[in-house]
């Protein structure tokens, strides 16, 4: 038994590292969401109207005007691409299944290993960016933003979140996180690859609870890439001569690859560290 404070502190640090290493399980959600993103590629294959075919958004089912978390509502379709409700359904179902599977995975793993990672933060941020674009954003847009106008409504929203945070005696950073999540929820609906932002928020939440340098690196890389591909496809598409389908394919495949590499990296790290005594 160590009685010297230095040895005792070293021993406790080793125990903390060991517990942290044993509870790490981020490789599974990274691989899972990598597969989910890759499996979305077929939904982005060109399904165009015949030349000269025209369509109007008014012909689409009423549900489409509400449920469009894939940015199709604001995307221009100059090349004749017909928006697809199935693409929205795919993302909503896949992201929900991915979310539930991740929570289940951490619980299952806790029962197996003996140490449990808290998924509360992951659940909170993911549910927010999953549900808010479907319910909060359309309602807020129709009831508040359309009535008051954007400048006033935005100020009311920011002040409201700040006051609510202070009343709940939470730190200012909580208000910053909530406002950032509201912004992401809005972007989810207007960016062509909005669902990637939902995945990005989820993996960033996991990185926070996992406290792993490798997990954080891949989560930040994925979030930056998700923002880039969304910005790229929103503002640069029009000036590029490559076929849209090819760019969509490359955007999704590269995003999937980052997640899969993060998952494989996590698996390798787990095996390597497992071989080295704490």
């Amino acid at each position: 038994m160590a009685t010297d404070p230095r040895h005792l502190l070293d021993e406790l640090s080793a125990l903390r590292r060991r517990a942290r290493r044993d509870r790490h399980g981020y490789w599974f959600p990274f691989l899972l969401f990598g597969v989910i993103v890759a499996a979305a590629i077929p939904w982005y294959l060109p399904a165009r109207c015949e030349l000269g075919c025209s369509w109007s958004a008014n012909e689409l089912p009423a549900l489409w005007h509400w449920l469009h978390p894939t940015g199709q509502a604001s995307k221009a379709f100059p090349s004749g691409d017909h928006p697809s409700l199935w693409k929205d359904f795919y993302w909503m179902a896949a992201l929900t299944v991915g979310f539930l599977a991740t929570v289940w995975w951490y619980r299952w793993r806790a029962a197996k290993v003996g140490v449990e990672t808290s998924t509360r933060l992951y659940v909170q941020v993911t549910v927010f960016v999953l549900a808010f674009p479907l319910l909060g954003v359309p309602l807020a847009t129709r009831l508040v933003f359309s009535t008051l106008g954007w400048p006033v409504a935005l100020s009311v929203l920011v002040v409201g979140v700040l006051v609510a945070t202070l009343l709940a005696k939470r730190k200012l950073r909580t208000a910053v996180v909530i406002l950032s999540l509201i912004l992401v929820a809005h972007l989810v609906m207007i960016f062509p690859f909005g669902p990637l932002l939902v995945v990005a928020v989820g993996v960033l939440g996991l990185a926070w609870v996992e406290r792993s340098a490798l997990c954080t690196s891949f989560a930040v890389l994925f979030a930056a890439w998700a923002l880039f591909v969304n910005g790229w496809s929103t503002w640069v598409y029009g000036s590029v001569l490559w076929p849209w389908a090819l760019i969509d394919f490359a955007d999704l495949l590269s995003s999937s690859l980052i997640l899969v590499l993060g998952g494989i990296g996590g698996l390798i790290a787990r095996r390597v560290r497992g071989a080295v005594p704490a």
Partner: peptide, 20 residues
Amino acid sequence: RHRLGILTIAAEVKRVEFGY
């Protein structure tokens, strides 16, 4: 020492199992 160890591990995780 052992109680410190128990608290250190428990503080790192949400829950820890007795056998672990």
